[in-house]
Design a protein around this nucleic acid. Structure first.
Lengths: 99, 99
DNA sequence: GATACATATGCGGTTTGGCGCATATGCGCC
DNA sequence: GGCGCATATGCGCCAAACCGCATATGTATC
């Protein structure tokens, strides 16, 4: 079965996961330890959040020596990608307003 | 404080609320009893879901005799409206695929 | 004021979600 | 094989979400 809207939205409903997506959405690869550091999240917490994103089909992971590199899933259905784009764009905007 | 992304996404994370939004998104007014009937939801359940949408600033309500008419909030910040549009568009699409 | 219909809400129960802690697993290096 | 770093996961705890049931509130009609 393909990812469903429910999974996508559940994934987006957590601020740490949205912050992780904002980082991954540049198209590059980022390991868990980098995300932990940048988001000030504990190791188990970060790992679990990434698992949710992976199982929703939003991101892909790849073993690279000790590290696991996460990246945006380029094959995510475009209608779902649009949702994520809209969410990240809106949140970037709000941050600007605050700043 | 204005509605925040967190509230919007929490609101969208429930399938009944998304279905209600799909109905309200035509711009018209719809009372709770109509939504109950069309979504096969109990009265208290429907009323509570609408409260969540109202408190998130997504919809407005209006007393009209015995009824309470809900409608889309036209003043919802456009960046949030875009998120909802994307979600509803994606879900309409998936339904078409299934059908 | 009594009745009927529409809606909201208090309450209690069950489920789901997020977290920390500890531990397991995978990998490289010596 | 032993050690160290990176990541995943089992477990228990706590908070939040959803629901049904019962009841309260608001409105119209008689």
């Amino acid at each position: 079965m393909y990812p469903c809207m429910q999974e996508i939205l559940t994934s987006l409903s957590d601020p740490t996961r949205r912050a992780a997506l904002a980082i991954l959405w540049d198209g590059g690869e980022h390991c868990v330890c980098e995300l932990m550091a940048r988001l000030e999240a504990s190791q188990s917490r970060m790992s679990r959040h990434m698992k949710v994103l992976r199982e929703a089909g939003i991101v892909l992971d790849r073993r690279d020596a000790q590290w696991v590199r996460y990246r945006r899933n380029p094959d995510l259905a475009p209608e779902f990608a649009s949702v994520i784009d809209a969410v990240l764009a809106a949140e970037t905007r709000s941050e600007r307003k605050v700043a």
